[in-house]
Design a protein around this nucleic acid. Sequence first.
DNA 1: AAATTATGTAATCACTGTTTACAATCCTGG
DNA 2: CCAGGATTGTAAACAGTGATTACATAATTT
Lengths: 225, 225
Amino acid sequence: MPKAKTPRRTGYHHGNLREVLIDAAVQLVEEGGPGNVSVREAAKRAGVSPGAPFRHFANKTALMTAVAEQAMSRFRSEITNAVESVATDDPIERFAAVGIAYLRWAIRNPTHFQVISTRSLIDWDSSESLRHDNEAVRALVEGSMVEAQRRNMLRSYDIAETQIAARALVYGLARMCIDGHFAQWAVAGHTAEQTAQDVLKHFVALIGNEPETAKKADLTLEHPD
Amino acid sequence: MPKAKTPRRTGYHHGNLREVLIDAAVQLVEEGGPGNVSVREAAKRAGVSPGAPFRHFANKTALMTAVAEQAMSRFRSEITNAVESVATDDPIERFAAVGIAYLRWAIRNPTHFQVISTRSLIDWDSSESLRHDNEAVRALVEGSMVEAQRRNMLRSYDIAETQIAARALVYGLARMCIDGHFAQWAVAGHTAEQTAQDVLKHFVALIGNEPETAKKADLTLEHPD
DNA sequence: AAATTATGTAATCACTGTTTACAATCCTGG
DNA sequence: CCAGGATTGTAAACAGTGATTACATAATTT
């Protein structure tokens, strides 16, 4: 009998190392951002040798991509749930709901949002799931946009550009929070999340057809940066 | 005579290693983005031992911060030059000029824009110069915004929110390009730069008071992502 | 039961940021 | 002008990283 050297782990072949590694990586992301993830540390936390992860992931990027897929799925759920639970069928309100849910998730899960939005960390093109979830969100925005135009609720006729502007605005707000451009800002009375939402609503009012735009005069926000 | 071990370099103490290291790091950034920078490689290119850089920079972040300062200075110059060489004194046109110059520089210097906008790479707070240049750009935007409001050229009364929206939009556009969210997009007829400019102009039209907004119906842009 | 395949380990490689002890050069005050 | 301290370089080391390799063990198929 060869007397197993380290029989500490039962069912020696671990069974579901892949999932455990992803969970460990998720935890590392939450603890200190994407930069805090190391394959070795994930392996250590899974109670496995440093080379073991490479039986399940071609490289670190593949592991990060799996983390991103998990995060993206939650991200998409939050958004689709939010828009489904919106009372009205007003397309502009539905559009706003998407943006607000987007910002809410991004600001509350900054490290994970960083993972799913920074392409250098992951292998976006190789992941069906990432593209699929992303497309679902995009389609949600486009759908409400098209419907809003059909009802003549938009100021501009060019929904393509309006849509890109909307995406860029929301993405920009999320990243400005995450990249730390709002240092002074969050210190002020308003939370970053609240302010981001206000700005989004401001934008929504701008694209709308209503002659009376948001005239809530001054929130006297500290200037960002 | 102790016969210098490696007298290959004249004026042995190199004279201006600090600048040479920054230049090497800049080159590395250009070659492969911020992730391509290593202190050791910069040292090698400067013809110096791996420990030498730490006589001039406390750590890698300090080196990257120096790189960022140089980039930020160019970034600011491009923007201030652009707005100064704008013919009209129309504040909204001046505002648009800032945004266009911003996008132009970011898209043409993506790796450097990544350096100056990703706070995890640099020590933003410790750099007077970074804050100063950033504030100059911000003030430029705010100035034109305030003036536009004074002339009653804006739709909304809340310039604070409009200003944040503008910043977020431009930042979002720049980062979407850089983070690779426009893959299919750039392949289409329009360059990323042209499209980003169009979207910016679209936004500028939206915030303006003119009843007739941009009605250039369809550019039939491929959808991003 | 034997052969094959999947999945782990151990050792190793090249590379990274950073620190330490030491050496060479420069600068300045007597 | 030169003694001595401050600068600024080197060499060697350390711990950590992603990744590969040869090998061992467990699960699975034949």
